[in-house]
Write a protein that binds this DNA or RNA. Sequence first.
DNA 1: CCAACTTACTAAACCGGTTAACTAAATATA
DNA 2: TATATTTAGTTAACCGGTTTAGTAAGTTGG
Lengths: 335, 335
Amino acid sequence: MGKNVKLKDIARELNLSKTTVSFVLSGIGDEKGISKATQAKILDYSQAINYRPNQLAQSLTSGITNTIGLIVPSIGDAFYAKLVKEIEKEAEKRGYVILISSSERDSRREMNLIYTMRAKQVDGLVIAPTDNCKKEVEKLLEDNFPFVLVDRICLELDTNYVIIDDEESSYKLVRNLIDKGRRKIAFLTTDTKGSAILNRAKGYHRALEDTGTKLDRSLVKEVPRENYSAYTGDILRELFENHPDIDGFFFAAHYLASETMLYMYKNGMDISSFGLATIHDNPVVEALAPNMSVAKIPLDVMAGKAVNILWTNMKKKGVNEMSGTVIPAKIVIKD
Amino acid sequence: MGKNVKLKDIARELNLSKTTVSFVLSGIGDEKGISKATQAKILDYSQAINYRPNQLAQSLTSGITNTIGLIVPSIGDAFYAKLVKEIEKEAEKRGYVILISSSERDSRREMNLIYTMRAKQVDGLVIAPTDNCKKEVEKLLEDNFPFVLVDRICLELDTNYVIIDDEESSYKLVRNLIDKGRRKIAFLTTDTKGSAILNRAKGYHRALEDTGTKLDRSLVKEVPRENYSAYTGDILRELFENHPDIDGFFFAAHYLASETMLYMYKNGMDISSFGLATIHDNPVVEALAPNMSVAKIPLDVMAGKAVNILWTNMKKKGVNEMSGTVIPAKIVIKD
DNA sequence: CCAACTTACTAAACCGGTTAACTAAATATA
DNA sequence: TATATTTAGTTAACCGGTTTAGTAAGTTGG
């Protein structure tokens, strides 16, 4: 790589001072009273040698890196990949670039990532937090560092966040199944204890209560989040054995829905005979279960709001007023 | 945010010089002859006030940011999301963090991204290049900047790269279909002209030639990459109308395979009656077409090799010997 | 008892930019 | 003609670390 040209080199070459060159290249040449002739000379030469300012040096003085840190549970997951894409898009609009990492749902890792990113002086953080996020997020609050949580929140803490109305959406979906005459609705959820999952369970419970349907705990199954694919088969088999008359399913997550659809498809079951509903879907669900009602998480809206909140927080360096935003999921009822 | 503690603050507080503090915190206290007592004092105090060195400043002097730039066509795409995940994993092993951006298959954007990332002083770049990558990649070569291409290469340029054996894999897949007695094998590809796509077409052609099968141009369909989903239906309809006796398909990309499977499934066609093969698959293909042969792209291997090549390139700052690696896709034949 | 050597640090330059404060020369004003 | 103002720059400090070269005080050897 070698000889990257610096401001000093340009200055020496043109018999000018670093200051003059810096003024011109920063676009404040007129303002600083640099003659048109000199400006042209500087611009031409910089162009010719393909000068590229070192942003590290610039950031060191300005205190701004134009970089946002983004931490998600797993970038390999199609859902988070879409979220990342939208956040990248929004960030780019405002001139930010994204430093990304996966927490792998491990709060220790999450803490380290936050540390690393802050060391790299990111201007702000967007985090889809782990279940045990309290400690590291608390530190961000203490330091009054700009950040916003997305998709899930950190219980007990007053932070910026953008999430969907998990409980309400779940309520509506389950309520709809019951209203359509379904009586034995199984609930597949995960063993994680994040805010989103907990609220989805609440929605399920409330819909049962409101309709006077008795909660049958044996219809509620917690699939281990790690390696869920390996467990779903056995869990479903057991479920169908104990309850051959199940007539509906509510899924707390898209991957549980698709796993179940695959199971039914492979076992020759009639998917269309069930009342089905899920929080967010995926291509497999769309393909196999046109009759699945869905609460679609509007990732573009979520990303837009999140980056916006973060942006205002980064601008006013003063006190942070926390802004919690709950956006409605897009409910699509199918029959 | 406010009062980030600096080296100077620690030095003042402990009545020591910046130098001493820096030595100790860099772990070279012994080497530099700083007394144990002083070292302990510095370490304790830094810990207590939660000192966090500013990596911008460190990088400015060292010339190293421990950051890798990663540019993919689209991070929202499940395939690239997986690739990103693997690259992140490999990078992390070596202490690197990832700056990510999507080129959106636009070489202008790609050029700007490369510029931005170099301005931010990334130590190296991993790029899944656009079809028109020549200009920007040439500049990287000129500047002897460390980078490696993945998934696709830049035609006519001698660079580092890691790709799969597109032609050979395609050949094997198509050859297998023919050997199993398929005679009218349609080829669905895209209108893009990247290296991967071109080589997959070559494989298809060569398999036909070697088996004395006549190439029927009307069996080859280029689906527009942008908004492919909107076009596939019409293209397939036309294909089946003109060739009711099609008995096989070879897909140049997983999304073409899944779109076609969805079409067949929705139209009640018997998927199992066709001979099917694709380069890489996805969950929908797996679900609907257990009889589809696949050349799986080993993203973990690809990422591992790529980061490794990049890493050695970043270490030896000298001349770059370009290392092109072609890894075999994992061929899975199904019936 | 003085030179030589250790020990335990420090001053200042540097990385590559930005910026506040200053100046020399040219022109305008009184 | 002497002074004020404008024009077109420059000097040097700074951002927050690292690093080279150096030094003061204490210890050892002859």
